[in-house]
C-alpha cells in the first residue's frame, strides 16, 4: 500500500485519482468520528464530504511531520466544532440511536475486559469540547501530543480536559469486569 505522502505527491503531479484513494482510505474513520460527534447520519455524511473537500483544498499545507490521519482529524474536528457552534444546536439523538438497546451478551463482556463502556447516545450528552477530546483519545487512539496538535491546545490542557470529561461521563458508564457478572450502574 502506498504511503499517504506518496499519494499526495502523485496528486501534486496532477493525478486526481490519488486523492480518491485517500478518500477511500479515510472516509469510514472520518465519518464514524463525525457521526459520533453530531449524532445524525445524514449530517455526518454531509460534513464528511465537506471535510474531504476542505482537506483537498488545503492539501498543499500538509507537512509529513504530522501523521496524515491526525492532520485530517484536525480538519474534521475544527469543521465539526465550527458547524455545531454555527448551528447553536445541540447534537440530536435520532431514532437511529434510540433503537440501540444493548444487551450484555457474553461476547461483549469478554470484549470489554478492563474497560469502561459508554453508550454513544450518552456521549452525545457531553459538551462538544469534551466529546471531541474523548473520541480522539479513545476511539481514534490519538496520542495526547497529537490531540494537542489537532485541537491547537497544550498537552497539559488535553490531559485536564480528558480527565474532566471522564468524570462527567462516569455517571453514564457501565463498568465491566473481565468475564464477571455485569453490573449496570446507570444507563
Amino acid at each position: 500500500m502506498q504511503e499517504e505522502w506518496e499519494l499526495i505527491e502523485q496528486l501534486r503531479r496532477g493525478n486526481k485519482q490519488a486523492y480518491t484513494e485517500i478518500v477511500e482510505r479515510y472516509k469510514g474513520k472520518i465519518y464514524a468520528f463525525l457521526y459520533r460527534m453530531i449524532g445524525h447520519s445524514q449530517d455526518a455524511q454531509d460534513l464528511t464530504q465537506e471535510v474531504f473537500i476542505k482537506a483537498y483544498c488545503k492539501i498543499g499545507d500538509y507537512r509529513p511531520d504530522f501523521r496524515f490521519s491526525a492532520w485530517l482529524f484536525r480538519i474534521a474536528a475544527n469543521h465539526c466544532l465550527d458547524e455545531l457552534r454555527k448551528r447553536k444546536r445541540l447534537p440530536a439523538t435520532t431514532a437511529e440511536e434510540s433503537e440501540l438497546v444493548h444487551e450484555n451478551t457474553p461476547e461483549r463482556i469478554l470484549l470489554a475486559k478492563e474497560q469502561h463502556e459508554v453508550l454513544h447516545e450518552k456521549l452525545l450528552a457531553l459538551e462538544d469540547d469534551h466529546r471531541v477530546i474523548l473520541l480522539l483519545r479513545y476511539v481514534e487512539q490519538l496520542s495526547y501530543k497529537e490531540i494537542a496538535e489537532v485541537l491547537s491546545i497544550p498537552v497539559t490542557t488535553v490531559q485536564m480536559r480528558i480527565f474532566r470529561a471522564h468524570k462527567k461521563l462516569r455517571q453514564y458508564m457501565i463498568p465491566v469486569k473481565g468475564g464477571g457478572p455485569v453490573e449496570v450502574r446507570e444507563v
Binding site: 472516509k27 465519518y31 457521526y35 459520533r36 455524511q45 440501540l100 469502561h116 459508554v118 474523548l134 476511539v139
Partner: peptide, 17 residues
C-alpha cells in the same frame, strides 16, 4: 481507564467517494 464507545455506525452510501 480506557473507554469503549458502544453503538453502531450507520453505513456510508456506496457512491460516497
Amino acid at each position: 481507564r480506557e473507554i469503549r464507545v458502544l453503538g453502531d455506525i450507520p453505513p456510508l452510501p456506496d457512491a460516497f467517494t
